[in-house]
């Protein structure tokens, strides 16, 4: 309970609280001799009450004027969830359907399917920290790791804009991992790569990525949205001459991920249903307990102060109307 005020000097007005101690506000009537009046516990109680009411009213008004608020706070919570970075492919091909055609009213594009399913995925996991990165020719920083579900949804919805050019997966992965840099995060760290193609990773980047994957203890999920008639992850080359990273980037990327010795799972999805299955699978797997701090935004209490002041003033007004008039 951290309270603070906007304009502290207004708090000097709290000195006015002493005023009701000397004067309870009831009109004076001269009386020759008070000692003769018998003691009356009810009246004494009412006098004390009047003074307390007066002091409380002044306090509420002054606190309202000073702008009382509760500062931003964070509460430590334990939930089942994970720190997930969604790494989305924004290459041109994502705007095509799974069949490799332009989307029409019957078939949705891969990007739209990914958007829809990820939206469901995010909505079903309230305790996750999510960050979003995208990549195309170069990586795009979209949203850092956050708990703000509205921002996450907005970031996912923002992928509506048409996709960009090519696929540069190594830089995308580097950026996704940079999300975990310098953050104390409990619970599992997940990179969820959604792409419809792969690219060769040059040896320099490969070395760097290996090191980072080890350091960050990342679990990697790859949802490969396979377009019809394109090479799959597990496909073996028919001709040994084609067995290189440039000809079969998917196979080699998969081999690279497998060789990292980190928890890694690849899903090859050839339709929205298959993709749905893959996401449900991840959803089920990643439920480790996670410590996280929930942030409670600053609460303005001046309105509450004014409400109290108004209520107390009504009571005082009622008592004032009870006053004897002569």
């Amino acid at each position: 309970m951290n309270f603070a005020v906007e304009t502290p000097w207004v708090l000097a007005g709290l000195l006015f609280m002493l005023w009701p101690l000397f004067d309870d506000g009831v009109r004076h009537s001269p009386y020759p001799w008070l000692d003769i009046l018998p003691p009356d516990a009810f009246s004494t109680g009412l006098t004390v009450l009047l003074r307390i009411l007066g002091m409380a009213t002044i306090a509420a008004l002054v606190l309202g004027l000073a702008g009382l608020h509760r500062t931003e706070q964070s509460i430590e919570r334990i939930g089942h969830g994970a720190n997930i970075v969604l790494l989305l492919d924004r290459s041109n091909s994502m705007d095509n359907t799974f069949a490799g055609r332009t989307p029409d009213s019957e078939e949705e594009s891969k990007a739209a399917a990914a958007r829809r399913l990820l939206t469901e995925f995010v909505a079903g996991r309230p305790h996750d920290m999510l960050g979003i990165a995208e990549y195309s020719t170069s990586p795009l920083f979209v949203l850092p790791l956050t708990e703000n579900k509205e921002a996450i949804q907005a970031a996912i919805n923002a992928t509506v804009v048409p996709a960009l050019a090519y696929t540069n997966i190594s830089k995308g992965l580097a950026m996704a991992m940079s999300f975990f840099n310098n953050r104390e995060l409990t619970g599992s760290r997940i990179v969820l790569l959604v792409s419809d193609g792969a690219a060769a990773i040059d040896p320099d980047s490969e070395l760097q990525l290996r090191q980072w994957f080890k350091q960050q203890q990342i679990r990697l999920y790859w949802i490969f949205l396979r377009t019809a008639n394109s090479p799959g992850i597990y496909e073996l080359p028919t001709d040994s001459r084609n067995d290189n990273a440039d000809a079969m980037p998917e196979r080699y990327l998969h081999k690279f991920f497998t060789s990292l010795n980190i928890p890694y799972q690849a899903y090859e999805a050839e339709s929205p249903d298959a993709m749905h299955k893959a996401i449900a699978d991840i959803d089920r797997l990643e439920h480790l307990p996670r410590h996280y701090r929930e942030r409670i935004p600053r609460q303005d209490l001046s309105a509450l102060c004014y409400q109290w002041a108004a209520g107390l003033m009504l009571v005082l007004l009622a008592l004032k109307l009870c006053e004897v008039r002569r």
Partner: peptide, 20 residues
């Protein structure tokens, strides 16, 4: 008066007392 809030001030020493 039979009813009401009244505050008497002693004419001698100025002390006050509120009575219901």
């Amino acid at each position: 008066p039979p009813w009401g809030l009244i505050r008497f001030q002693d004419m001698e020493n100025g002390a006050t007392r509120t009575l219901f």
